[in-house]
């Protein structure tokens, strides 16, 4: 495959310079196998060093470079140029969180929501001298939600969150789910109580944007539905996977 000449449109906002966000265009030669991240860095390094973005691992496991790529939330390091339908690449910061500079948003509100759901194992029983036992089925019950990398692609794609930044958002619920359905955990009631709040799971309108945005392909909407179901039935089944909501 030959090199492509891309027009990279970046929604710029440098607080020391710009009174409001503005669009800026750059032309760049890109290899089809390049990642969008490579293209942005090429522009930054060769044309305009002031472009602001976060990045670290560059292969989709650290969650630093979530952004809106051609209108959808993606990690810039997981989208290859060859997958782009046209030679125009449009980049914006993710929505719903305050923009600090260019593609960089303030992650503090996001992490505050995450911390609010008690995202850690709660079990005050004295542990055995070796491991706590857990069957492969019990382990599989919450496997999907252990994969979250806290990139905020889901929460920043959620229309109810755009309208109400007090809503804990999908990522926080995913991380609550990860412990609620862990057979070793004893904190489910406490977490479910938090999520039963007006700013908890009931803000979810089952739009599925979160599921579509997740770079780890976590079934986010299903996890939220399972938490809702646990609240409605008052039961938490940590032993078997039940398909409450078949996703396509």
């Amino acid at each position: 495959m030959s090199m492509r000449t891309l027009t990279v449109r970046i929604k710029r906002y440098v607080p020391e310079r710009d009174r409001a966000p503005r669009w800026e265009e750059f032309k760049v030669e890109a290899d089809p196998h390049d990642r969008v991240l490579d293209v942005i860095q090429k522009v930054k390094w060769d044309q305009d060093e002031t472009i602001g973005l976060r990045r670290s691992c560059a292969h989709g496991v650290c969650g630093s470079d979530a952004m809106r790529i051609n209108g959808v939330n993606r990690l810039a390091c997981k989208v290859l140029i060859k997958s782009l339908p046209s030679d125009v690449l449009t980049l914006e910061p993710i929505l719903g969180l305050p923009v600090i500079k260019d593609l960089i948003v303030d992650m503090k509100p996001f992490f505050d929501h995450y911390k609010s759901v008690l995202p850690y194992l709660i079990n005050d029983d004295p542990p055995p001298t070796t491991e706590r036992l857990q069957s492969p089925e019990e382990r599989a019950r919450f496997d999907d939600t252990t994969r979250c990398i806290l990139c905020a692609c889901c929460t920043a794609a959620c229309p109810p969150f755009w309208g109400d930044d007090k809503y804990v958002g999908p990522a926080a619920i995913v991380n609550a789910h990860r412990f609620i359905f862990d057979s070793r955990d004893r904190g489910a009631a406490e977490r479910l109580d938090i999520l039963n709040d007006t700013e908890g799971v009931w803000r979810c309108r089952t739009v599925f944007n979160c599921t579509n945005a997740c770079p780890r392909e976590i079934k986010v909407t299903q996890a939220i539905q399972e938490v809702k179901q646990a609240l409605l039935t008052g039961e938490v089944d940590t032993h078997s996977i039940v398909n409450i909501h078949q996703e396509t």
């Binding site: 542990p127 070796t130 491991e131 706590r132 036992l133 857990q134 069957s135 382990r139 496997d143």
Partner: peptide
């Protein structure tokens, strides 16, 4: 493991 790390398990739960 006691902190909650989700290791994969053997059939007997270890």
């Amino acid at each position: 493991e006691h902190m909650g790390l989700p290791f994969d398990r053997t059939p007997d739960g270890r």
